[in-house]
Simulated scan of single mutants.
Amino acid sequence: MIISRTPLRVSFCGGGSDLPAFYREHGGAVLSMSLARYVYLSMHEYFQSDGYILKYSRVETPKTLGEIEHRILRQVFEDYGIRGVDFNSSADVPAGTGLGSSSAFTVGLLNLCNAYQGRYEGRTTLAAKACEIELGKLGEPIGKQDQYGCALGGLNFIEFHPDDSVTCESVPITQAMRERLEAGLVMFYLGGTRSASEVLRKQSEQVKNSKRALGSMQAMVRQARSLRAEIMSDVDLIGPYLHEAWQRKRSLADGITNPRIDEAYERAMAAGATGGKLLGAGDAGFLLVYAPDEARAQVCAALPDCKAYDVRFDSIGTTIIYSD
């Protein structure tokens, strides 16, 4: 039995600039944090060695590789020559809620398959391979930030270059600053799930066809660069940065926000939050807000209909937590 654990992620600034339609022309950048909420994947030899048993949100018992319906599992098992396994997936939060769970699944699966075959690949290699699978082989209209944010762990500044290369820089903050950041950040689950693909497809088209949307995206990249430099001196700046980033993002395309999201955000701000944003592509999932000191309790009281979740750093990234 081998078990991999891969963190989910939150993106503070620059989300959307990791889409190929944007970064191949203009270059992109995000400031991203790995979250101490995880996707867990396990695998061991299947009793019936001529087939598979695959347990995720449903159960498959295909006899051959080609019969596997889960596209990521089928592609990775084909690439790595995985046969005759019992596979299981579980996660701390539902898929489709804006925390990068699909890419965390891919990264964790690659790590798991390497360990199963007695091989090792570094975290940046795993992220790059996950991008190749999701964007290249499977043709998903998504970006590259989730794969790196989930693979690496910690607080990272990630740049996406026109030649498709990616560079990652760990952002050093003190333990006291990290604790203050964690104490001020809170996620509210607004309900619902969604596929990011359609929202991101619309966003890419809007950036291509609208000078206003393009200008907003370029400003979001500048924001990410600026916050990367300033957060090391004052973590409380993240509130106003999140607010500005959300105002820009919600104007990029239809489907990013809705009346329920807007109303929850307005209540949080009125109660003392200094900023926030919806996590992920849009329309559903988690609202992240920054509410330092006494404002945190006030904001939680102002959103009694939304379950609040603490935000804690994961500093490790994808890892193998059990092997026997």
Rank of each mutant, 00 (worst) to 15 (best):
I2S: 01
S4H: 07
R5C: 11
C13V: 15
S17A: 12
D18N: 07
H26A: 11
Y40T: 04
S42F: 02
F47R: 13
Q48V: 08
I53S: 04
K55W: 00
Y56W: 11
P62R: 09
L65D: 09
F77Q: 02
V85Y: 08
A91T: 15
L112R: 03
C113F: 04
T125Y: 07
A127I: 04
A128Y: 04
A128G: 09
L135G: 01
G139M: 14
G139D: 05
E140S: 03
K144H: 08
D146W: 14
C150K: 08
E159N: 01
S165W: 05
E169I: 02
A176Q: 11
A176W: 03
R178S: 07
R194V: 05
V199I: 15
R201V: 02
L214T: 04
A219I: 03
M220T: 05
M220C: 02
V221F: 03
R225T: 12
L227E: 10
P240Y: 12
P240D: 07
H243W: 10
A245K: 02
L252N: 14
N258C: 14
M269R: 04
A271N: 07
Y290L: 07
P292H: 02
D293S: 11
A295L: 12
Q298D: 13
A301K: 12
V311Y: 15
I320M: 09
S323A: 13
